[in-house]
Structure formats: structure tokens, C-alpha cells
Simulated scan of single mutants.
Amino acid sequence: MAHRVTGVLIFFFLFVHVLDTALVRVSPEDYDKVVATYKTPIVALLEYGLTAAILFHALNGLRVIAVDFWSKGPRYQKTMFWAVGVIWAVLMLGAIYPLLGHAYRVLFGS
């Protein structure tokens, strides 16, 4: 279920991304205003969530491929699921500072 939810979230992000990028051809001034709204701590948290969704979707997709195409995949499905969770958590911990460092500096001024 989480794989489907993250897929839908990524789809909606891409849809909005295409729309706001297309705005540059219609009105560069409005595009600049929209992009300026993205430089907030709340959007930084949303970017972190997007990164979480993309990483989980990609890693779990590899697990699904392994289950479907590897003869021993169904036997190790649970183990691979936990491996995906651990790898995802480690990568998300590594992404905290690069993605949220700016938001921290904006909020706390350091």
C-alpha cells in the first residue's frame, strides 16, 4: 500500500512541477513569485517528505522486482522488506542536514 501511496504523491508533485515550470513561459514575473514562495521552512519539510517518498518508492520497487523475478524472492520477501526499511532510514538520516539545514538556519538564525 505504501508503494502505491508514494507513487501517487510523486505523480502529483511532478504534475505541479510541470505546471509551475510552464508558468515561466506565460509570465516570468509570476514564476519568480511562485519560486520565491518555495524558499520557506515549510517547503523544506515538504522537500524532505518528497525525498522520503522517492527513496522508499525506488527501494521498494527494487524489492518488488526481486520478488517477482528472482526464484527465491518470495521466500525472502519479509527480509527484503526490512532491509528496504533500514536502508531507507539510513539514507533519510543522511539527508537531514542537506535538505533541512537551510530551514534550520532560517528559523533559528545560525
Rank of each mutant, 00 (worst) to 15 (best):
L45N: 01
L19G: 10
G101V: 02
V24E: 14
T51M: 12
F13R: 07
F13I: 11
Y31F: 14
W88R: 03
Q77L: 06
V86K: 00
L50V: 03
G94Y: 01
T40W: 01
L23F: 10
Q77W: 09
I96F: 05
V5N: 03
F15D: 11
R63L: 02
L9C: 11
V64T: 10
V34R: 10
L46M: 12
Q77G: 07
F69D: 08
L62C: 08
D68S: 14
P41S: 00
K72D: 05
V84S: 01
F11M: 12
A44D: 09
I54Q: 07
K39V: 07
V34I: 13
L45F: 06
Y38K: 10
F81E: 13
E29F: 15
V67I: 06
N60S: 13
D32Y: 12
L14E: 12
L45P: 02
T6R: 02
K78Y: 12
S27Q: 09
G49K: 01
F56E: 02
T40H: 04
T6V: 04
F81N: 05
A95K: 06
V8I: 12
V67R: 10
W88L: 08
A58S: 06
D20I: 14
A52E: 04
A22N: 14
W88D: 09
A53G: 01
G101T: 02
H17Y: 14
A58Q: 01
G7C: 01
T79M: 08
V90D: 05
F69L: 10
V24Y: 15
F15G: 10
L62E: 04
A22L: 15
L9M: 06
L93M: 09
E47V: 15
G101D: 01
N60D: 14
L55D: 05
T21E: 15
T79E: 11
V34M: 11
G73T: 00
Y76N: 09
L62Y: 09
L99Y: 04
A22D: 11
A22K: 12
V26N: 14
R75M: 08
A36L: 10
L50D: 02
K33D: 15
P41G: 03
I10G: 05
L59D: 00
T6Y: 01
W70H: 14
A36F: 05
V35S: 12
P41K: 00
V84P: 02
V35I: 15
A53L: 01
I65G: 13
L19H: 14
Y38S: 12
L19V: 14
A36G: 06
R63H: 03
T79C: 08
W70N: 12
I65K: 08
D20Y: 15
L55E: 04
V18T: 12
A22R: 14
R63S: 04
V5K: 04
S71F: 09
D32C: 10
V5P: 02
P41L: 01
Q77D: 10
V5I: 05
T37C: 09
V86A: 11
L100C: 01
Y48V: 00
L93W: 10
L46W: 08
K33L: 15
V67L: 08
V86C: 07
L19C: 12
H17N: 14
K72C: 06
A36W: 08
L9K: 03
F12S: 07
F69P: 06
V26Q: 13
Y48T: 01
A95N: 05
V43W: 06
L62H: 06
L9F: 05
K72S: 11
Y97D: 11
L45T: 00
L100P: 04
L9P: 08
A44I: 03
F81Q: 11
G7L: 05
M92D: 02
A66I: 00
T79A: 10
